[in-house]
Design a protein around this nucleic acid. Structure first.
Length: 594
RNA sequence: GCGCCCGUAGCUCAGUUGGAUAGAGUGUCGGCCUCCGAAGCCGAAGGUCGUGGGUUCAAGUCCCGCCGGGCGCGCCA
């Protein structure tokens, strides 16, 4: 409808140009919006306000001339000029009602479009290190990334969902060392656990598994393992230093000691045990959450192919690499970063940043038209250096969108649920899903703008009342299903074609409001997708459900008049279809009975 | 200190990329079931859009300065 109106206005403007009113004026994109207020019609255009200056006349006068030049349209009942020069369009009832037939015809594809033209877009999200189970922060990235991907797919982009598995870095070695140390404890050895080790309970589980598989064959005396190591650094809860040392050097040395003591083969075994078990757990967790990927991309394969070193070499050739204090630095300040960044440490290890440059470079080499990264907002400082490196290498950083997701704060009984990474005491995504269910979790995660902190009310997410937007929307769906059941129980006839033939009977104000809400769905999908804003869809579905509940409360669907009943049934089914389509994109189920 | 994000009803948040009289939910108060699911609906009350300037036909929206909150500022990831 919007494009229809734009076409009409465009024709009018061209007509005026031939009359010499707007000679030499370049015609802009024509603004057409849904009116907020019904008294302003259905759609409004501010085109006359925008062009008044160029046309050298008053906005209202220009609006008059545009309206006079508008071609006739069977879908418009009235055109008015209002306020400073808005052109308001009033649609015919038939223009509203037509959407019902459109929805019934298109079913699950209603709302989808070919806007993206099949462009290839990669969406990388979650990508949490496989050093432990996903927590509630990752959950938001998962729900958000999955929904953004679904939305883009719905408007015609070809989507490649990807999880970048950091299976090669230093952190994985620290995990392996942590598992081994817990294993030593399990076997009776005693020592202070390194402050930079992984201390979650799952590490002990992995250690127990190692023991179950190999008994005490991997044991080494703690006294030997810890002999002549750099001092650890230990702080109390307040952050005050109890033991001054270098925790990084300490843990790195422990990793080396583990490798030396176990030998390559056995060290590899511990490493793989940790990686595989945790990665499998993450995969299962996400699959249960309705989040699936086209690809799990391994950092290790990237490194084994020599891509990281090759990338550093390429950066060298650009002249943006220099050596200082034994390390290699990338001159990211030349690209707007606050300071230069290390790509290779003094000890020869490449940094996470180095492999990330290689990875992003490869994303473009794989032929994606656009690349989207979903990151936690605490990584925002990382954006300039990645884009800077891409620019240095001749890639186009403008084709990379980094979407930042703020943390979710859990509330229970009105109080904030405390989470501390220091003690390893955090709520996992799985715990959250089990507590509130997948539907509520998926919906709550995306119902706010991503860059907004999310207050996640656990009690609300669990409540089965209208306060809970998930239930509210699902209830509208279930109600339509219930009407169909009633139809059968009462032995009333139903004829879809008869309903289509009598859509003109849908003239009640509540019906009109519902029809307008339905017609908005494709527009909502488009803006939600292009702006990467799932919350717009969530918000819309609530409004649609509200329009239906209001209507349902005011009018009966199963009336005795066959034609009216069938028309209303078609309207109800169309509503059900749109709710189903929308919930599907959000990864939320649509139960027939609640 | 520097950089990024946020500040809208008591609370949680929208606000169609600059449009007309700033909207929902929740909470408070008051109504609606002999009738398709009351897990619902209707009404009332609630605002100097943090603040002071600027840009223009038009600013919650864009620019600048303050105030308040969050995050970042490692040879960690």
């Amino acid at each position: 409808m919007k494009t229809h109106l734009q076409t009409l206005i465009n024709q009018a403007l061209q007509h005026l140009q031939t009359e010499g009113v707007l000679t030499g004026v370049e015609l802009p994109a024509i603004p057409v919006e849904r009116s907020r207020d019904r008294t302003h019609g259905d759609f409004a255009s501010s085109i006359a306000l925008a062009l008044a200056k160029a046309a050298r006349c008053k906005p209202r006068d220009l609006a008059d001339r545009i309206v006079a030049a508008l071609p006739a349209s069977g879908r418009i009942v009235k055109v008015e000029i209002a306020g400073p020069g808005f052109i308001n369009f009033f649609l015919t009832p038939g223009a509203y009602q037509a959407v019902v037939a459109e929805i019934l015809d298109q079913g699950e594809t209603f709302g989808r479009s070919a806007l993206g033209g099949g462009q290839r877009v990669q969406v990388e999200f979650v990508s949490a290190n496989p050093t432990g189970p996903l927590h509630v922060g990752h959950g938001r990235g998962a729900a958000f990334g999955a929904t953004v991907a679904n939305l883009l797919e719905a408007v015609g982009y070809q989507i490649h969902r990807e999880y970048y598995v950091n299976d090669a870095g230093r952190q994985m070695n620290i995990l392996a060392a942590s598992v081994w140390l817990r294993y030593l404890e399990h076997c009776g050895e005693q020592f202070p656990f390194p402050s930079n080790g992984y201390r979650g309970g799952y590490v002990r589980d992995l250690a127990a598994r190692l023991y179950a598989e190999h008994g005490s064959a991997y044991v080494a005396p703690a006294a030997e393992v810890f002999r002549d190591l750099p001092q650890d650094e230990i702080r109390d809860e307040a952050g005050e230093a109890i033991l001054a040392g270098d925790k990084e050097a300490h843990i790195d040395a422990l990793v080396d000691r583990a490798r030396a003591r176990l030998g390559d083969h056995r060290y590899r075994y511990v490493f793989e045990l940790g990686l595989n078990n945790i990665l499998d757990d993450i995969r299962d967790d996400l699959r249960e959450f309705g989040v699936v990927y086209e690809e799990w991309y391994s950092e290790r394969t990237l490194e084994e192919r020599g891509a990281v070193n090759k990338t550093i070499q390429r950066l060298r050739e650009t002249g943006q690499i220099y050596e200082q204090d034994g390390a290699l630095w990338f001159r990211s300040t030349a690209f707007g970063d606050e300071k230069d960044r290390v790509v290779q440490r003094e000890n020869g290890q490449t940094t996470y940043f180095a492999s990330d440059i290689a990875y992003h470079l490869e994303k473009f080499e794989r032929g994606f038209d656009r690349v989207i990264d979903v990151w936690g907002a605490d990584h925002h400082g990382y954006v300039p250096r990645v884009k800077g490196a891409l620019q240095a290498l001749g890639a186009h950083p403008g084709r990379l969108d980094v979407l930042l997701v703020q943390f979710a704060i859990l509330y229970r009984n009105g109080e904030r649920v405390q989470m501390s990474t220091r003690s390893g005491d955090f709520v996992t995504l799985r715990e959250l899903r089990h507590e509130v269910g997948n539907d509520a979790a998926r919906f709550f995660y995306v119902m706010r703008k991503s860059e907004q902190h999310l207050d996640f009310d656990l009690d609300l997410a669990k409540s089965q009342s209208k306060d809970n937007p998930v239930y509210y929307i699902q209830y509208a769906y279930a109600r339509v299903c219930s009407v169909l059941r009633q139809l059968r129980e009462k032995n009333l006839s139903r004829d879809e074609q008869r309903g289509r033939d009598h859509l003109a009977l849908l003239t009640e104000p509540h019906e009109e409001a519902l029809l307008i809400a339905l017609a908005r769905y494709p527009e909502v999908l488009e803006t939600a997708a292009l702006n990467h804003e799932p919350h717009q869809l969530a918000q819309y579905l609530r409004e649609l459900a509200n329009a239906f509940h209001t209507y349902y409360n005011e009018h009966r669907v199963l009336v005795s008049d066959d034609a009216l009943r069938d028309a209303r049934l078609n309207l109800s089914l169309a509503t059900r279809q749109v709710i189903q389509n929308g919930l599907h994109l959000l990864g939320v189920s649509a139960p027939e009975v609640m």
